[in-house]
Design a protein around this nucleic acid. Structure first.
Lengths: 204, 204, 204, 204
DNA sequence: ACATAACCGAGACGGTACGTCGCGTCTTCTA
DNA sequence: TAGAAGACGCGACGTACCGTCTCGGTTATGT
């Protein structure tokens, strides 16, 4: 699930016409466009196929379902957009990363992610895929930011790092998906100054 | 939307056979059961009607759509389950309320709520209904808990109360909907002690 | 198979909305039109549904397949068009009936019947339905024509009536379906005078 | 259409690897087997290719379509199986030829031919190919049988030879394709004695 | 001898129709 | 008039087959 499986590694000598890898991108692009226009619920495989000038079978050859296509489209985008900052200070890194993440979530991917979240409870495979990519990618960056802060001596000794990582993600996701309030810079600043820094930084 | 509309106010003197109010509960109960079993996406109106031994028209007479039925079912449950605690201390109130809320979310309503969240971006009416009930109900309780703490002099002067309310909800929802980690008592305790109390309470 | 089965005889008290019998006719009419335009092979259920402004499910509720729909459409037409002649003489009756039958087969129903014939070997139910209606209807008329001729003393004593009936049908069908030569009045006359009359009539 | 087109006449000097002529037979054999098993309608090119362990392109290099493949398969068989008898008497020749033809039609080719007949009205090329081979081959044999009978003085002067040929074919085809009654020897005998001989032979 | 060109098996591709399912509405009978 | 039952128009689903194409690999010929 989640990524087109024909990577080639486990495929014997290559018989028959090989899959056209460029169709992957065209289909992902089409999926993203359609989703941005009409949303996840109203996204139909026919629409994606038509926009990419592809047959539906070509989609189903690569992804098992609408969900699978969408999650793959999103995680691929996530991996390209979650750059790791290094400003030299904990507060700077947090601000940098969280504001970039907030901007990313405010785009079409945010809507898609939200739609996916609704499917997690009844789709275990999707859930583990989603958590293994979207979620851990973001948490790992935050963990490394805290690691570097520790090396610089910025952290308290007993800093609850896991909780900090969790709260950082939670604050953004909650706004995005539940309250609908804007994920803007002032909000990120307040989260960093009022919540995260007091939680882990020295002498606050 | 959201609540059965036949409350009587706008309906002319009442001619013909009156609606059987007990069908409301039967249908909500059926909806909850079906949703707990197969999830929101796979819930069909036919299934709900069949389980309640009702006709589909009977459902559509009361709710406008599948979404409307589900949101109403959930908010009604929420209103019954969000009791307001009064233990005499801020930490006690928070612990009490958040653990009760966590327990509530861990049940079938949690799954349903999660499913609804996926629909919010493309269903503005649903979104405002959801926020106007599920969300504000919980936030109001938290606000009143903080109010009482202030009266008792437990709060710092500049305590960011809005942020505290937001973080409290976010921490729970994030676990419930994103990470899937358990919403247990130790977690609630850690949120209260490590995050919320330092954020708003005096002399921490 | 072959005819909409909801005739009512075996259906308990009638629960729910009854089938709209006028849809039957509309769908049969649409099927006939589409078949006349594009032929049996190119006839699609979507096209029939669209022309009758019906949903495909409405078709499948009444007929099991494209074949079933078409055979029903044709046999109904056959029953309406195979009038029994009574001119007072064997030759007259044969001429009358066979020319009417030839005219009927020369229309759209002929093409449809031909298409159906191609399916008979692998569709036993269809075969028995086809033979039980289309075929026997026509054979029965011929048999009765011979019966009346016998009463009038026109038949030879040892007339091979079964063979006469069979050859009459065969001559027409062979032209229609195999050679494609015209099923016109001169041909019918020659069949009657050269083949059928010598076969069964006295003193020829 | 109808026969593999690479006969060589119109093809430039022959460059590259020449076609493997043995694939023709393998593919025709596979087509015949599949058709005998599932019928014409359910015959798919993929199935034929798979059974012959051939690629689909190999089929389409030789025949233009499914129909083309099937008609070629059948006419080739027809040409091999319609031997011309010479018993010395009209009745003997007719009996001999028609019983051989009946036996041939009772095999898988009969089913295939029937399937093809269903396609004739909407496939003019197929129709003329079918009539130009299957049909005329059989009619020519019958005509020559009548010619020899005339030379022996067995025919009436005004014998309607065309009608005799037509009725002979019609009687068999009608049973085969319409009524489904057996094409056995007694039936052939009765057709010869009761219908054909009286129609054309002297002194009957 | 060896490049050339057409062959071959395999299977991906764009497309069309399939038969099913769910939606929300409408229409019957029964209470 | 409400309610149960279920037919209705609509539209998306995921599958199957069409006929074409593109691979890697094979096999005769023509330079």
């Amino acid at each position: 699930m989640a990524t087109p499986v024909y990577s080639g590694a486990t495929r014997t000598p290559q018989r028959g016409r090989p899959r056209d890898a460029s169709r992957d991108d065209a289909l992902r692009q089409a999926a993203l466009e359609v989703m941005a226009e009409v949303g996840y619920r109203a996204l139909t495989m026919d629409a994606v196929a038509a926009r990419a000038r592809a047959g539906k079978a070509t989609i189903y050859r690569r992804w098992e379902s609408k969900l699978d296509l969408v999650i793959d489209t999103c995680t691929q985008l996530a991996q390209q957009n979650l750059a790791e900052p290094d400003t030299g200070s904990l507060a700077g890194d947090l601000r940098e990363f969280l504001s970039a993440f907030a901007a990313f979530l405010s785009g079409p991917v945010g809507k898609a992610a939200q739609a996916l979240v609704g499917e997690l409870p009844h789709e275990p495979e999707l859930a583990s895929a989603f958590r293994g990519t979207f979620l851990t990618a973001q948490r790992d960056v935050l963990r490394r930011i805290l690691d570097r802060a520790e090396e610089r001596g910025e952290l308290r000794q007993d800093a609850p790092r896991g909780m900090a990582v969790e709260i950082a993600g939670a604050a953004l996701i909650y706004r995005l998906m539940l309250t609908g309030d804007p994920l803007d810079l002032p909000f990120v600043d307040r989260v960093v100054e009022q919540v995260l820094m007091p939680l882990v930084a020295k002498g606050q």
